[in-house]
Amino acid sequence: MIAGALLAAEEGFEAPHKFLPETYELLFGFIGFAVILTALIVFAGPVIKKALAARTQKIQDELDRSAAAKASAEAEAARVKADLAGAEAEAAGIVADARREAEQVKASQLALIDVELADLREKAAGELVAMRARSLSEVQGSIALRSIEAAELIVRRNLDQETQYALVERYIDQVGRMQGV
C-alpha cells in the first residue's frame, strides 16, 4: 500500500484513502482468502488434525511407557532397596556370628595356649631340675673320683713297711674276732 501510494503520488494519482485500498480490492482479497482458507480447512485440516492426533497419541504413548518404566524402575528400586536391606541385615548377622565365633575360637585358642604354656613351663622346670641334679651328680662324681685318686696317692705314699705290717696285724685281729663266717 505504501508502495502503491508512492507510485500513485509519482504518477499523480491520488488514492481515496491514505492507508486503505480500494473497496473492490478488499472484496476480491477477502474472497480469495476465504477460498484458500476453505480449501485449507477442507483438504489440509483433517490431515493436519490426524497428524496432530497421531503425534499427540505418540507422545501420550511415550508418556505412558515412561510412566510404566518409571513405575517398574521404582518397583525394582524398592525391591532392590528391600533386598539390600535384607542383605545388610543378613550381612550384619553374618558379621555378628563371625565375630562371636571368632571370639569363641580366640578364647578357646587362648585357653589352649595357656595350657600348653603351663605344660611347657612345667616341663622346662622339670628339665631344669633334672639338669641341675645331673650337673651336681657329675660334679660330685668328678670330685669323688679326684678325691679317691688323691686318697690313693696319699695312701701309696704313706704305706711304709711299718704301716703295712700294722694293717696285716689289724686284719688278723679282726678275722680272729669273727665267728661263723
Binding site: V155, Q164, L167, V168, Y171, M178, V181
Partner: peptide, 17 residues
C-alpha cells in the same frame, strides 16, 4: 696296696686298702 684278702672256698674276707 695294703692289708690282706683271704678266700676260703666261696667266702672272701677282704681287708685290703
Amino acid at each position: 696296696l695294703g692289708g690282706v684278702v683271704a678266700q676260703v672256698g666261696d667266702t672272701v674276707i677282704d681287708g685290703s686298702v
